[in-house]
Design a protein around this nucleic acid. Structure first.
Lengths: 336, 336
DNA sequence: TGCTAAACTGAAAGCGCTTTCATAAAAATA
DNA sequence: TATTTTTATGAAAGCGCTTTCAGTTTAGCA
């Protein structure tokens, strides 16, 4: 229905219906407070003009935007995407918009953190896998910006964590139970970005500890710290697998890197799992496609939970903070 | 810096600096229009109070939100994610927020389309892989909502397309050049959702035509239409590969499904590419990890381009509409 | 020094909606 | 029928910022 000029405002509707704007606003927001006949007349006017309230105006008056934000690095990495899926699914029931703030530098992060809570452009914030200074956390909390942290925690904010160290232990125990004695580890232990978190380090610790307790050595050459880049991962995997005495099993601290390791093994004609067992971490979607054994960390669930907690707190700010610990599961497939 | 009450407004700053709010607004929006000394004083007041303009108020006054929206189905499917990546990368340079509207039903789509342009909560819209009624397209256009369509087109809106039919042809030609004569096709030809588009059908057409021209038959049992679900895809793949005379090559119309086919082949101990050649479509990230031969459709690029066109039009609405056709490339890896 | 042009600044209107408060009308009660 | 409640509505005050317009300074120049 092409119509020439500007879109109608609440004033136009009021005029057409012969009532005041207050009444229009009421039929929109609390219909039961207006007389049935008037309501009907107003509805007709609304339909006739195709009126839709301008969201910004509403947000301005209401001081709330029905919008929640997600602050995240690498927002297109599979594991992050799956968390998003969880967030989106929780949000789709309610009437919230989802806005994404991709973070790819400390400045970015700082900028967002310092302005977002004051701009009030969103009602709540989910921060994924980003380390947050105490100052910043305080700021969010003080400014009343409801926030939930994933993979990080702070006493003043909600958080959802997993036990990375235990995950590493699970990987070790699984490999040990399969009879392996010469193991290796590959993962991004030290992300160069200052704003990133270090869950991988914990996974390695758990892995090491379990091995130690089982009396199985894990010497330096068998521990490789590699950034997520496919190139570097493949290079490191190659070096590891062409060692004089190559490991018989590898714990790769992220599925995405495990894929690279599998690829290198294929290139080297190393059979998986006969010659080499591989266990990943995350259980991203493709893990199943390629039959990768891995530690599942319920990514979708973490996102959904984060959104739910957020909505709950937004609607009822007096609720207590929540600090949730999500379980991990070993998903055994064909690579071990 | 914990501070008790509400966050400061432009009025507070004005008072502290001893000037009018107009001046505050000016130092924020057109600093050169205000005297250096005043500006300095204002900046100090701003810093002292930690003032940040409320985004909604600004948007309300400005009638523009510096925010662009993306309407998309399956927004966590790898191919969509990669397009997002492109969009985000283009947006990160400018100061635009990215809001996502996941569509999982016709109602959803209709609701968004009819209200978004009037709510004016965003300055521009990217619609991915969704078919748009003429009415709706007109509405967007008439209401002055800048829009770019991906994988669909309408004369009144910008669009970015690929030549799916040619893609199918490329796949056929590649397989033929490898000496295959008994081919098969697997893909989601008829998406059940009314709002979805049917690029896969075109891919099949191109595939068929190329085979016909080469004098190679493709009979019904070798053409399987299957929804994206992993379960169903695997089932269909299994049937195809256990046919009395199984095909020696398959064109799978999406990489994600190709992964499933690869998995089934593995389960059946069918060697790829010796016993079975597989070629996918899309070239999603994992395709490289698993060495899948495929037709690349430049997903990242399509997203980036869409965002760039959008921004260009937003800044200069008089620019002509653009209808872009993105090229396709054969990426030969190890599955053919 | 006197006059005109340029540079600054403030008052006020506007952006479109929500909501409180007071009033008028209708319903309920005496 | 007169009086008290209840219900329905409108007027008007915000929400916090941008921008036009006019007025005031300051600078430029003769």
């Amino acid at each position: 229905m092409p119509h020439g000029k500007k879109s109608p405002t609440i004033y136009d509707v009021a005029e057409l219906a012969g009532v005041s704007i207050s009444t229009i606003s009421r039929v929109l927001n609390s219909p039961d407070k207006v007389n049935v006949k008037t309501r009907k007349r107003v509805m007709e006017a609304i339909d006739r003009l195709g009126f839709v309230p301008r969201a910004e105006a509403r947000a301005h008056a209401l001081q709330s935007a029905n919008r929640i934000g997600v602050l995240t690095p690498f927002f297109t990495a599979p594991s992050f995407v799956q968390r998003f899926r969880g967030v989106a699914s929780a949000l789709s029931k309610e009437n919230y918009e989802l806005v994404i703030y991709p973070v790819d530098s400390v400045d970015h992060l700082q900028g967002y953190i310092s302005s977002i809570p004051l701009m009030r452009t969103i009602d709540g914030l989910i921060i994924m896998s980003l380390s947050l200074g105490d100052q910043d956390a305080q700021r969010l909390s003080n400014n009343g910006m409801e926030t939930v942290l994933i993979e990080y925690s702070h006493p003043k904010l909600n958080s959802i964590l997993i036990d990375d160290e235990y995950g590493g232990q699970m990987a070790a125990e699984h490999l040990i139970s399969k009879g392996h004695t010469l193991l290796a580890f590959l993962g991004d232990i030290e992300p160069p970005e200052k704003y990133a978190i270090h869950p991988v380090k914990s996974r390695l610790q758990g892995f090491k500890r379990a091995l130690r307790e089982a009396g199985i050595p894990l010497s330096e050459p068998y521990i490789r710290s590699v950034p997520y880049s496919q190139e570097e991962t493949k290079k490191a995997a190659h070096e590891l697998l062409t060692l004089p005495t190559p490991p018989s099993a590898i714990f790769v601290a992220s599925d995405i890197q495990a894929l690279s390791v599998m690829k290198v093994a294929r290139q080297l004609n190393i059979r998986v799992p006969q010659d080499l067992a591989i266990i990943g971490f995350d259980d991203i979607d493709v893990a199943e496609h390629v039959d990768l054994t891995t530690i599942r960390q319920h990514l979708d669930e973490s996102g959904r939970l984060a959104a739910e907690i957020l909505l709950a707190r937004i609607n009822e700010p007096s609720r207590p903070l929540q600090h949730i610990n999500l379980p991990l599961n070993l998903i055994e497939r064909l690579t071990t």
